[in-house]
């Protein structure tokens, strides 16, 4: 901490708004908005999902959001950036991945555009915006998991369902039926091709 500098560490996540008058280094994760009169550095491994308004920007990590930099933007080789960039200077190293629109002309117009978009968002609520922006990155793993369990359930379900229906339907009737249709329904919707194929193979 020799110089004035703010660091968001590797294991730290900020969701909301960061603004101020000193350099900011993000090594962890920021979701929301970043507004600085100084430099922002998004380090390798860091993920920033935010609208950014800074003097200069250096990215070697991942940045998703619209950026206005009044001085310069530098995308290093390991940078992964999606979003519009507005800056009078742009340096992009070989290897940097970028998708978006670049405007090296009228920075003030770009800033106004970002500001007006940002002004429209808070009406929804900052936390909701933050949650929305979290959703895409968090959801995939959760979505990816169910199919596996569904497949497992497909393997297991036919064996369980048949005996339960035959032997205990009278006793456990009131409690269990609501549970089975759900499982059976999920299996039926997702996995019957798999289940059938495997049964046939065996």
């Amino acid at each position: 901490m020799a110089d004035k500098e703010t660091v968001i560490g590797v294991e730290t996540r900020v969701s909301g708004e960061i603004r101020g008058g000193e350099d900011l280094v993000v090594k962890g994760r920021v979701d929301g908005k970043i507004q600085l009169s100084h430099a922002l550095t998004v380090e390798k491994g860091a993920v920033v999902q935010a609208d950014v308004d800074v003097r200069s920007l250096v990215v070697s990590g991942t940045l998703v959001g619209n950026t206005v930099a009044s001085e310069s933007v530098r995308l290093l080789a390991s940078a992964r950036v999606v979003g519009d960039l507005a800056s009078p200077r742009l340096i992009m190293e070989a290897g940097a991945a970028y998708r978006g629109r670049v405007d090296m002309g009228d920075i003030e117009a770009a800033r106004a555009a970002v500001a007006s978009r940002a002004a429209a968002k808070p009406a929804v609520g900052r936390t909701e915006v933050a949650r929305e922006s979290l959703a895409p990155s968090r959801v995939p793993p959760r979505v990816a998991a169910p199919p596996k369990t569904a497949v497992l359930a497909a393997k297991a379900a036919p064996r369980f369902v048949a005996p339960a229906g035959g032997e205990k339907s009278g006793e456990t009737g009131p409690a269990s039926p609501p549970a089975f249709p759900r499982v059976a329904g999920a299996v039926g919707a997702v996995a019957p091709p798999w289940a059938k194929k495997k049964v046939r193979r065996r």
């Binding site: 703010t6 996540r13 900020v14 101020g20």
Partner: peptide, 9 residues
């Protein structure tokens, strides 16, 4: 840092 404002979590 001292001149930074964080509004959120």
């Amino acid at each position: 840092g001292s001149s930074i404002v964080v509004d959120g979590e």
